[in-house]
Write a protein that binds this DNA or RNA. Structure first.
Lengths: 355, 355
DNA sequence: TTGTAGGCGTTATCAC
DNA sequence: GTGATAACGCCTACAA
C-alpha cells in the first residue's frame, strides 16, 4: 500500500541529474542529452515506477488531454454504443474521456457540463437528446469549451454529427410500400426530438410520393423504451386495426412492438410487418429477425471525436451537420427474408469469445 | 469564442482584494471575511463567469475528486447499466468519472489503467470480466491506487462487489425442477469466468440435491452475445434433443436462445422452458416474456462507489466479497405466467417520457 | 550537454 | 478581517 507517486525530482536525484534534464528525456523529444544519461534516467524512472503527473503537466500546458462526454443513461442502448466508440477513438488519439450520464428526468445537464468545465476538459461531446431542450447547457457549451453534438443544441453554433434521419424514414417506408402495404403505422420517439421529426418527415414524404395520405392516427408517440412502445402499439392497433405495417424508431422499442402485436393475436410479418431503426446486435436474433435501418453509431462516434479534435486545435469546423449514410438491413420482420436462410437474410459471425 | 477562463486573481483584482481572500470566500467555508467583501467577491466571480480550475486545486490538494472506471465495451448491456449507475452515484458524492472501455480482445486493460493513473484518479472501479486474466492490470491496481472490482482480480487484495452468483444458478435451476423438468441444459458465458463457474456450481448442486446427475453435454459455453448463444443452443439441442429447459447466463443471450429454439421448431415454454439472468428492461417484452434472475446492477454500482470511497478515505474495507441478493422474476418463458395477465406476470410502469 | 529561473492557478499557513 | 509567502509537479525558455 505504498500509494505514493514518485516525482520527476526523485527520478532525477537518483539518476544524478537535475529534474529539468530528466523532464526532457522523459518527454521523449530527442533533445540534446547524452545517450547514456538518457538511458540512465529512463532506467531509474522505470525502476522507481515513475508515472508522470498529468495534473501538473496540464496546469502548465493549459490543456488536459481529456474530453468530456455528456450522455443519456443506459436505457438507450444506441447511445451506449456511441459512447463506447467515442471513448475508444479518443483514447487512440491520446485523449481520455470524462463522462456524465443525465438523470432520467434530464435535469442535471448543466451540473454535468459545469463538472466537465471545472475539470478543464479540452472539449465536450454531447450525446443526449435531452440537451436539445436545455439552453443552460447550450450556453455553457458555447461560452466555455469547444463542443460537438449528436443532437441539435439550442442556439446553434455547436457542430452536429449524426446520420441522415430523413433518409432513415424514407428507406423504411419505401420498403414497406414496395411490399404492398398501404396502412403503415409508426411508433416513434418523443415528437419534440428532431430525430423523430426528421424520420417522420421522411415517412410522410414517402407516403405522399406514393399518393398515400399520412394520417395522424397512424403515428403514435412513445419514449424509446420497449414498455412505452408496447403501449403505443396497443393504441395504434386500437385506432387503426387494419394496420398492416409498423415503422418503429429504434430496436429497443421494436421488442415492445413485436410483443404487443403478438399479444393482439396478430403475427409478424404475416399480419403486421415491422421495420425499425438502429440495428443493434440483438436485432437479427429477435423472433422474427428484425428488419431495421442500420445507423452507423460506431463510425459516428469516431467522426464526433475527429471533429471535436479539429475544433480544439482551431481548425474551422463546418456549421453544416455531418451526416453519415444509413442502410436498410433486410430480415424477416418485414416479410422478405429468404426462407432458405432459416428466416434470416444476414447473420453476422459473432464476436470472438474473449470475455 | 472567448474560451479563456478567468482566474481567481482576476476576480480578486476586480473586487479589490487579494486572491487569497477571494479563494477563501469562493471555497464556501465561513472564514473570517466581512460579509460585504464576501458578497462583493461572489458578485464579481459570477459576473466574470469564474469557474474554479480544479486542475490547480488537485495539484495542491493531491486528490482529483475523480475516479476511474474500466469497463468492457457496449456489447455487454448489463455492464453499461452498472457503469451508468456508478457514474451517477459518484457524481452525487462529488466525484467525476474517467472511463476506459476495453477493446473487444481485452488487450488494452493496462493501457487504460496507466491512463487513469497518470491522470491521478483517486480510485478505480473495474467492471470488465477480462481483468480476471490480466495480471498487469492487477499489479498496477495493487501498487498505485485504491480499487474495487466487479470481478475477481488476480492476486486478490482488490475488494469485490457483486451478487450471489451461486444463488443465481440455484434459483433458476430450482425453479425449473419445480416445474417438473429433468433435462435442464445451460447456455453459459465463457467457462473461465468466475461468474460462470459460480452459476454452474449452483446449477449442478441443485441438480444433485434433487438426485439428478449433471451431464456435460447439457452445458454449452457461449460468449454473452445473442449470436454465440444461438450457436450454443443449436449444439445443445443437437446433443440432447430431449432437453426441456435451458438456463441461460444473461438476457442478451436469451434472445439468441429463444431465436434458435424457435428455429428448431420448438415452442417456448411448451417444449422448452427458458430462465435467464440479469433482468434487463427489455426482458419482459420478449416473446414470450422472459423469466430471469434479477441481478441488482444499479445497487451494485452504488455499493461499488461507496466501497471505493471508503477505501480512498482510508476506512478499512472487508476482504470478503460484498454480495447483493438476487431474485427470480417469474414471467412466461418458463411456463408459469398467469395467462390472464396477457402472458406476463409483472409489468413495470415505463419511464416518464422525458427524452 | 546540462542546469537555472520563472510560472501555471490554486490552497494552506501564518503574520499583520 | 486580510494579505504575504510557500508549495503542489511539471514545462519552457534561456543561460552556462
Amino acid at each position: 500500500m505504498a500509494r505514493r507517486y514518485v516525482s520527476i525530482k526523485e527520478v532525477a536525484a537518483r539518476a544524478g541529474v537535475s529534474f529539468q534534464t530528466a523532464s526532457k528525456v522523459l518527454n521523449g523529444g530527442n533533445v540534446r542529452v547524452s545517450a547514456e544519461t538518457a538511458t540512465r534516467i529512463m532506467a531509474v524512472a522505470k525502476s522507481l515506477g515513475y508515472r508522470p503527473n498529468t495534473i501538473a503537466r496540464s496546469l502548465v500546458r493549459r490543456t488536459t488531454g481529456t474530453i468530456g462526454l455528456i450522455a443519456s443513461d443506459a436505457t438507450d442502448v444506441a447511445i451506449s454504443h456511441f459512447s463506447v466508440s467515442v471513448e475508444q477513438a479518443a483514447r487512440r488519439r491520446g485523449y481520455a474521456v470524462l463522462v456524465g450520464h443525465l438523470a432520467a428526468d434530464g435535469a442535471d445537464g448543466a451540473d454535468i457540463v459545469r463538472m466537465l468545465i471545472e475539470r478543464r476538459v479540452d472539449g465536450v461531446i454531447a450525446a443526449a437528446p435531452q440537451v436539445e431542450d436545455d439552453s443552460e447547457v447550450a450556453q455553457l457549451l458555447r461560452t466555455y469549451v469547444p463542443a460537438v453534438s449528436l443532437h441539435h443544441v439550442p442556439g446553434g453554433q455547436v457542430p452536429v454529427v449524426g446520420s441522415n434521419q430523413g433518409e432513415t424514414g424514407r428507406l423504411a417506408t419505401e420498403h414497406l410500400i414496395s411490399h404492398g402495404h398501404r396502412l403503415i403505422g409508426s411508433v416513434t420517439g418523443p415528437f419534440r426530438r428532431r430525430v423523430v421529426r426528421s424520420r417522420l418527415r421522411g415517412y410522410e414524404a414517402t407516403l405522399l410520393a406514393h399518393d398515400m395520405e399520412p394520417h395522424e392516427d397512424l403515428v403514435v408517440e412513445a419514449d424509446w423504451t420497449p414498455g412505452g412502445a408496447a403501449a403505443a402499439t396497443r393504441l395504434l392497433l386500437e385506432r387503426v386495426p387494419e394496420t398492416t405495417a409498423i415503422f418503429v424508431h429504434n430496436d429497443a422499442m421494436a421488442i415492445g412492438v413485436l410483443s404487443e402485436v403478438a399479444a393482439t393475436g396478430r403475427r409478424v410479418p404475416a399480419d403486421v410487418a415491422v421495420v425499425s431503426c438502429d440495428d443493434m446486435p440483438f436485432a437479427e436474433y429477435l423472433t422474427p429477425a428484425l428488419s431495421t435501418v442500420r445507423v452507423p453509431l460506431g463510425a459516428t462516434g469516431e467522426r464526433a471525436v475527429d471533429l471535436l479534435l479539429q475544433s480544439i486545435t482551431g481548425t474551422a469546423v463546418s456549421a453544416e451537420p455531418l451526416l453519415l449514410p444509413v442502410e436498410l438491413i433486410n430480415r424477416s420482420s418485414c416479410g422478405c427474408a429468404d426462407p432458405a436462410a432459416g428466416g434470416r437474410m444476414t447473420r453476422r459471425p459473432h464476436d470472438e469469445m474473449t470475455r
